[in-house]
Each structure stands twice: as structure tokens, then as C-alpha cells.
């Protein structure tokens, strides 16, 4: 095991040395795979709202809409990022139980969680989370409803731009819709291990 590194690299070298020439890295435009038909000339918020719907997510733009959605779904106990809570406290004050610390021993107590997103991608309706933006990885994943708070200016146009913006955060995750499976007879079911409902709250 100790010498496996040298062994593998030697085998690789022996396998490749006889090649008369090596295939070159092709040059191409980084935005080649962008769906131009969909993205060209569009307002990013409008496009993002449209695209997230196709993956069973939704965009809301006010605290009141958030409150009404939560009441409608009877999701009354949740977690909220402490940095976001002061702005939401007045609207989600009465009737709701909201904690600003996430207790991993009681994950089933939380039916919703509100956390900060690092951005979004309009082309695919994707929400971007990172270790820096997300207060608890588990909070953004385990409750039935996840509300990601995105600034309008953080909505990126397409995946090629989102890849370029990955940066130095050790963990970035793109969430495109809600957790899903089609393992059982190809039938689509939402909410497998993660949220069954994915909402983006877009703020100015």
C-alpha cells in the first residue's frame, strides 16, 4: 500500500509512453453549453422564477407571501438564520415557533428553515448554497420546506457563469428543485432525504 502511488504512476507512464502523440486539450468557448434560446435577452429574476417552477420550486418576493405560504402548508415550527430573523420577526412573530439555533438532535421538530443563499442561476432555476452563506448544512436540508434568501443582484444568468463564480468556499452546492427520486418504477417522488418544498425568497 505504501508504494502504491509510485506503482500506479509507473503503470500509467508505461501505458502512455508508447503513444506516438497525445490528444490535445480542445479549445472552446466556455459558454458553449448555455441554452441561448432560453436565456437570451431575458430579465434574470423573471427567467429564474419561470425556470425554478419547472423543477417544482417557487419564487416569492415578500415577507407576507412567505408567511401566507407557511400558514397555508401548516408549517409553523422552523429555524431561521439569526442574521435574517430581525427583518422577519415582525411578520413571522405570532403563531409561529422559530428558533435561531438548529438542534441536530431534534431535526424532525423543524418543518421549515430559512437560510441565506450565496446566489442563484436563472437558466436552470438553481439556488446556490455555500458553507459561508449557510448557517447549518443540516438546517438547509432536513426540514420539509427550505426557504433560501437570495438578493436580486446575486442571480447569475447561466451555469457557465456560476462555475466561474465557485470561488474558494470548501463546499458549494447547487440545489435545482427539491430532493427527488424516480427509483420506484420510474415514478417521480419529491422529498426523499432533503426538502420536498424549495422556495427562493428574492430580496432587493
Amino acid at each position: 500500500m505504501a508504494n502504491d502511488r509510485e506503482l500506479i504512476l509507473k503503470r500509467v507512464k508505461d501505458a502512455l509512453d508508447p503513444l506516438p502523440e497525445r490528444a490535445a486539450l480542445p479549445d472552446y468557448a466556455g459558454d458553449l453549453a448555455v441554452m441561448r434560446k432560453i436565456t437570451a435577452g431575458r430579465d434574470l429574476l423573471e427567467l429564474f422564477s419561470e425556470r425554478i417552477k419547472l423543477v417544482n420550486g417557487s419564487v416569492i418576493t415578500s415577507k407576507e407571501q412567505l408567511r401566507d405560504r407557511l400558514i397555508e402548508g401548516k408549517w409553523m415550527h422552523g429555524y431561521c438564520d439569526p442574521a435574517l430573523w430581525p427583518a422577519l420577526a415582525a411578520t413571522l412573530g405570532t403563531g409561529f415557533t422559530v428558533e435561531t439555533e438548529f438542534d441536530r438532535t431534534r431535526i424532525d421538530d423543524y418543518s421549515f428553515a430559512i437560510t441565506r443563499a450565496a446566489g442563484a442561476v436563472a437558466e436552470t432555476g438553481t439556488i446556490i448554497l455555500s458553507d459561508a452563506s449557510t448557517t447549518y448544512r443540516l438546517a438547509a436540508l432536513t426540514p420539509w420546506v427550505h426557504i433560501a434568501v437570495v438578493s436580486k443582484s446575486e442571480i447569475l444568468s447561466d451555469l457557465s457563469i456560476a462555475v466561474a463564480a465557485l470561488g474558494k468556499d470548501p463546499n458549494v452546492i447547487w440545489c435545482t428543485g427539491s430532493s427527488s427520486t424516480a427509483d420506484v418504477e420510474g415514478i417521480l417522488i419529491r422529498g426523499v432525504h432533503g426538502p420536498g418544498v424549495q422556495i427562493a425568497l428574492v430580496i432587493d
Partner: peptide
Amino acid sequence: ELTVYTEF
């Protein structure tokens, strides 16, 4: 178009 979770 894209898998639901893409983690980097």
C-alpha cells in the same frame, strides 16, 4: 437539464 443536487 441539471441533477437536483450538484455539490462542489
